[in-house]
Simulated scan of single mutants.
Amino acid sequence: MPSGRVHEAINLTALGGAAAAYLAYGGSPEEPRALAFALAYLGGTFLLSPDLDLSERGVRAQRRWGLLGLLWRPYGWLFRHRGLSHTWVLGPLTRLGYLAVLLGGLLFLAQGVAAHLGMPFSLRLPPWPPEVWGFALLGYYLSQWLHLAADGLWPDHDLKRLKRPR
């Protein structure tokens, strides 16, 4: 299995090739859909790697979170390595769901502190059109799928496991 550096090199090479093709066909780097795609792809590559399920050893993605990387330890306890977290559809969703729970908890905490201090607090998501969010999701999923393909896990790997005689 490739190391974290190799996974990152594969993902960056693919993104660089896609960006070159996009620009060669007249695409603009300031296009919100392209920017959302690229940012989500990079976030999926560097911060939300499928290897976050390795709780016993600090993985590169977990270290990039700094002190907040400790919050990803329970994710590793919930999912065994190369289990559900390494599937093509549910795996990336588990990381997005876990991230949503983490952010919701931090937001709740921030609101409580702000209320205690008597400060106004509000958070609003950017008013992006739905297709921009779709391109962000596509970028995130493609980064995850390249990681899984580099690990030798194809979309049908769960089906093969089910077909094996017991």
Rank of each mutant, 00 (worst) to 15 (best):
W65Y: 03
R63K: 12
L35E: 11
Q62H: 03
R60W: 10
T45Y: 06
P50D: 02
F37E: 08
G43C: 14
L42K: 10
G69C: 02
Y41T: 07
G66N: 07
L67A: 13
L35H: 08
A38G: 06
A38C: 14
L48S: 05
Q62A: 11
G58Q: 11
G69P: 02
Y41W: 14
L70A: 12
F37C: 10
E31C: 10
Y41I: 09
P32Q: 03
R60F: 11
L39C: 15
E31M: 06
F46G: 08
G43S: 15
R57D: 12
R60M: 13
F46I: 09
G43K: 07
S55M: 01
L54M: 11
T45L: 06
T45H: 04
G44H: 09
Y41R: 09
F46L: 15
T45G: 04
Y41S: 07
G58S: 13
Q62R: 15
L52R: 03
G69T: 02
G43Q: 11
Y41M: 10
E56K: 10
Q62E: 12
G66C: 09
S49T: 13
G43R: 09
L39P: 03
E56S: 10
W65R: 02
T45W: 06
T45N: 08
F46W: 14
F46A: 10
L54T: 10
P50Q: 09
S55C: 03
L70P: 01
L67W: 15
G58V: 12
G43F: 14
A40P: 06
E56P: 00
Y41L: 09
L54K: 07
R33I: 05
P50N: 14
L67P: 10
D51Y: 02
G43I: 08
E56Q: 12
R57I: 14
V59D: 01
L67F: 13
A38W: 03
A38R: 04
A34C: 11
L52E: 02
R57C: 08
G69V: 00
A40L: 07
R60A: 14
L48P: 02
R63E: 08
L54G: 00
F46R: 09
R33E: 15
A34I: 02
R63F: 01
L39F: 15
S55R: 06
F37S: 04
